[in-house]
Write a protein that binds this DNA or RNA. Structure first.
Lengths: 294, 294
DNA sequence: TCCAGTGGTAAGTTTTGCTGATCATATTAT
DNA sequence: ATAATATGATCAGCAAAACTTACCACTGGA
């Protein structure tokens, strides 16, 4: 029913109007003049009405042509707009990435990383939200975010995980604690002291140091509370290095040498779900930055 | 710089989304399946990003594809809208004609003509304005209206004139006037009576009856006033039949048989200016209606 | 009358887009 | 398991579309 008006002939038409002639339009469009003539004639046949008439040798728009002109202009402009936007997104010049990260990463790692990314990709909008491991998993799984940054939780075939960095586990205690001056610790050294468990303590599970957990009677999930406990000298805890906030000048972080425990921080994505162009940009940027660093 | 997104591939893409598969889309579009595949691949190459990915054998939109879908939908819809409107106008199903007519035509002829036109072309808007001969000429010349209906004024190469009907000149007098009972008149019969000239009196110029004008001392341009004068029995006048309002039961119209004078009413257009499709419709309608009648 | 414009026309070539057959792969049924 | 039936991808061949070159017809101004 509806004939397809191809864009090229519409452009020809507009160019003829703008330049005032078939020859001039042909030059402007890098086409031969007959190509223009034929395209216009074809367009006229599709519409069933003449668009140009010859007034004293020159081509002049018919009333119908004058009616068409602004609509064709709009249509071509619309096309160009869509096309330009699509290319901008495809070429990672514009877009949006939604990221979820575990609090330690969000606060310790992301600020500088995102600053660099923002500079490299000024057109891409970023949304970063933090949440504990399970919440990050969930957000990635539900498609609320494209990329999650977390330690590997449960292997799940609906998710893919790519390691970014290894985060050493260590002991945190107050600076006047007997352990505070050591450079490295064997887990045995912790036995005499009160161990405060926290959300990351499960990282000890499956290692020799797991025994320590059995003797711990205190569990604090909130980081602020945990810090306060440690500052009060109530006991010691274990934390990944990234989760330890170095700004606290009364607290010390001592790496655990035996066993040498790490949590694998990495990039979590939905399996089988390709990234948006901007997500792709973010992923490669993060991989480059963090792979280089380790 | 900007690649041209042709409409057909966009339609293919949308059809794939709607039908949920390449094969189904191919059937819907009456194309072979490879045609769809190739068009999509070409589109992907132009944009520099994949639009579909294979998830479990089926094709699923990528995030980029999901971004594109609504814009492509809009663009295609825009095209179809413009296309449909243009075709409607070209096929004279919609549009607008501006007409100017001399008062006699506007009030005596146009009402029934336009009623018929409105029925035949329900989608076309009409604007009719009346004015004296010179004003009609001017409106056509300036492009304020496409079509004028008037008696031929001065031949002008910027205007084309096509005769529609011949309007007989006659004498108008009160029903108790000595001439009132005649069926036809020789101009000599008018000599004894007071002749009131009016705007149409120039039609007598160049004919034997021109002599009558020289003896007339009264000129009334306004039709209402003229009618009042005649009703008062002040004298007689000459008028084209169309300009004589038959509703006045005290006035009579007697055709002038010698000389047999007519004014040629016709269709006035700008020379070298083709009509809009709706103007074309109006012109042919008027020609058919009035040519048949005469 | 010629000359420099205009746009239109015709033959030939390149490009594009399509079909039909075939392939690789995954899901479903037997 | 294995066959049957989906999915989409690939390739060769062909036909239609679009373009180019060369030429024609017409107009308006030197």
């Amino acid at each position: 029913m509806l004939p397809d008006l191809k864009l090229a002939p519409l452009r020809y038409l507009l160019s003829i109007i703008d330049t005032g002639g078939f020859h001039a339009a042909a030059k402007q469009l890098h086409r031969s003049q007959p190509a223009i003539s034929m395209a216009v004639r074809d367009l006229e046949e599709r519409l069933g009405q003449r668009l140009f008439e010859k007034g004293n040798g020159k081509a002049v728009l018919t009333p119908f042509g004058r009616w068409c002109e602004p609509r064709f202009r709009e249509l071509v402009a619309h096309h160009d707009r869509v096309c330009r936007d699509a290319l901008a997104i495809a070429s990672q010049q514009r877009g949006r990435v939604d990221i979820a990260a575990v609090p330690s990463v969000a606060s310790r790692l992301m600020p500088t990383l995102l600053a660099g990314f923002l500079e490299a990709y000024p057109g891409i909008d970023i949304s970063l939200q933090d949440g504990h491991s399970e919440r990050v998993n969930e957000m990635v799984l539900k498609g609320e975010v494209e990329i999650g940054i977390t330690s590997l939780w449960l292997p799940d075939d609906a998710l893919t995980f790519e390691v970014l960095l290894h985060d050493d586990i260590g002991v945190v205690c107050r600076d006047d604690h007997p352990l505070a001056q050591k450079d490295a610790l064997h887990w045995h050294a912790l036995k005499p002291y009160t161990l405060i468990r926290n959300g990351t303590s499960r990282l000890l599970e499956g290692s020799p140091a797991e025994e320590l957990l059995k003797n711990s009677t205190l569990y604090i999930s909130n980081m602020i509370s945990l810090t306060a406990m440690l500052e009060a000298g109530i006991g010691v805890t274990t934390l990944p290095r990234l989760a330890f906030q170095e700004e606290h000048d009364r607290l010390r972080f001592i790496p655990l040498s035996t066993p040498h425990l790490q949590r694998n921080m990495g990039l979590l994505r939905r399996a089988g779900q390709t990234l948006s162009p901007s997500g792709e940009a973010m992923q490669t940027y993060l991989l480059n930055q963090l792979r280089d660093a380790s």
